[in-house]
Amino acid sequence: MNRITKKFTELKKKNKKALVVYLTVGYPDIATTEKLILELARIGVHMFELGVPFSDPLADGPVIQASSSYALKHKINLDNTFSLTKRLRKKIDNPLLIMGYFNPVLNYGLERFAKNAGLCGLDGIIIPDLPTEEARALRSYLDKNKLYLIDFIAPTTDSSRIKKIAKECRGFIYYVSLTGVTGARNKLPRGISERLAYLKRFIKIPVCVGFGISNRKQFQSIAKFSDGVIVGSAIIKNIRDNLGKKDLVHKVVSFTKKLVP
């Protein structure tokens, strides 16, 4: 069974919600990313999105954009992300996903990408600029390697698209909390709970909510109605604020700990 499904089944039994953390690979360096993931897994983060940098991250706000261009300068690519995954796999069993834009994947070759992603022990792929309609070829290669391609649903997605996505989706649905780019927000839009209840009528797999979530209060209110919560920019911002400090890992871990229920 794919580790993602296994994890959700496990959490459901305990009546718990998933905490998914996004980290830009190589921000500030690949060894620190590795340490962070191991430490965060220890304090109870359930899944990880490994952000592979792209030159033109059009779904990201300034914080992740900056971390992405930093990582690019330090030559982070798919291959060294696969190697990182391989090392992590020997130590932890948490689901690991790649979050990255489509062009580097297309350039790598869809079949080769799916094969190598499977070999190094990844469980899922999230591509913000690859909507369901264009995903067919990649999804079929990923299926062969038992990897999930995670679909998005947005506040603007209408019911006919929700039904279409419901037919294709695997692992979990990434529900985008707001119309906008990634980045911590003080306030989340109203009506998320109603929207999630509506989605649940069609979507039979877990739904995780991401974009804008930055504190424990938001986490708790979202967790009530969903199967998991994704936090990215808030943590990347914390890394940014602690860049160059010796106890960066410690600082980021204790920041994230505040979010863990």
């Binding site: 779904a59 309609e133 998005f152 947005a154 603007t156």
Partner: peptide, 21 residues
């Protein structure tokens, strides 16, 4: 109907924009 010119074209945007397109 998908906006393809042979292998080119299409819609590679975040889901949020798909209904707007």
């Amino acid at each position: 109907r998908y906006g393809h010119f042979g292998i080119f074209g299409g819609k590679f945007v975040p889901e949020t924009l798909m209904p707007a397109l």
